[in-house]
Design a binder for these strands. Sequence first.
DNA 1: ACAAAAGTGTTGCCCTTACACCCATGC
DNA 2: GCATGGGTGTAAGGGCAACACTTTTGT
Lengths: 246, 246
Amino acid sequence: MTFRGRVRYHKEAMPENASASSANAYPKPSVTVDIVLFTFTEEALRVLLIQRRREPFAGHWALPGGFVDENEPLEAAAARELYEETGVQGIYLEQLYTFGDPGRDPRGWVITVAYFGIISADQARQVRAGDDAGHAAWFNVYNLPPLAFDHERIIRYALQRLRYKLEYTGLGFLLLPESFTLSQLQAVYEIVLQEKLDKRNFRKKILSMNILEETGRLRYGDHRPAKLYRFTARAIELEKARRRFP
Amino acid sequence: MTFRGRVRYHKEAMPENASASSANAYPKPSVTVDIVLFTFTEEALRVLLIQRRREPFAGHWALPGGFVDENEPLEAAAARELYEETGVQGIYLEQLYTFGDPGRDPRGWVITVAYFGIISADQARQVRAGDDAGHAAWFNVYNLPPLAFDHERIIRYALQRLRYKLEYTGLGFLLLPESFTLSQLQAVYEIVLQEKLDKRNFRKKILSMNILEETGRLRYGDHRPAKLYRFTARAIELEKARRRFP
DNA sequence: ACAAAAGTGTTGCCCTTACACCCATGC
DNA sequence: GCATGGGTGTAAGGGCAACACTTTTGT
């Protein structure tokens, strides 16, 4: 019942290595991971960048990342690089896209597997620059310095992914501190999605998801105090179930 | 206004290559592309597989694919490999995921960038096996032979992506021949999504998208003839606009 | 007392779903 | 003439968008 195309086509443009049995006989690229880590502090959506100390692009800001080790799963490499360069551990990470265009790295043939991460404002405050990496800093996504390599493109892509994620999930709270007000959460959505939202509809929707609970505490500030919320364990479970893997 | 974490953390577990300035000084993986190409023929959703002639996994079925060339964009490598191994050209391709787990290839450290493609039943019929590749054949996704490497996992992931795509777009017609009946199209959705759909609701929805037009012809078969449709240029434009790109 | 943010319900509309019968052809 | 898939409309319910005023605090 299976259709089978058995007919050979004449030999043309068939490179020697297309079906090489030895994986070691042909030129190989370097492979890196880069991590686009988002958080939300000081009223802005921010990305973590590191100032490069070495060429190429010494002095430029760049995404945290580095070379993948042999026998290391890609996601482990991303987690490791992030830890080494910033001290950050145990955060939400997912694979974003793999960039391999010729010329993206002046050192030669370098393919990078980009990861996408979200970190709470609490954890973001603990970021430290690692030894070799130079400064680490959080930059407003909408106001970036000149970046090394094709990292601006990678961040733009990650921002799209973040928007898409917030559009159909309630994961915005992952960017905030452990407890937060609904107005703060709404600000996250408005700034990420770049559109104004209706206060009543926003609250109705977010609360109907059953992923938030009141802490019982209030945030006192300039005006009327606001209820503080935290997200429930269920919120994380729900998202893990939704996650498409692989 | 930007928060900056400047404090160094003490040196530990900092591998030499984490910030190497030469990309050539450290072990490199081989990098391949693999293509999961779907079509819909003989009442089934099918994937294109190629029977391997060489070790490892000689005789096993595997996804079309092969090594990326230096100075070759990844998507170009996917298109080239597909062309070389099957003669197929000019089809819908998008990056799926990058698999790099240790042990996924017995030859050593091999990372693969998987692509996802859709081909019309018309084009699918022209598939030919390339010189080095052995047979090419279309297999029912729900009834696969034992596969080489981690290709079964890759196909499962691609199937999820296909489901997701059909859930929120009208792209099912890309799997069918140039002209098709609405019942055929509904069968595509039912088999991909693995659920029964309501005939009237399905037609209403698909037609309200304004991506199909009547050809004016009928398909004569066992019973009452059915109107044949084709998709409009607008359908393709719409999808390109939606495509999230990097 | 006033300025500023927090908090709270209702209504209309649209989109989705559920559901059953006649029609045109081949045999 | 009968078996088979092709083709069609309507009504109810749920979710989403639009919309304005009162409450509570700090100053």
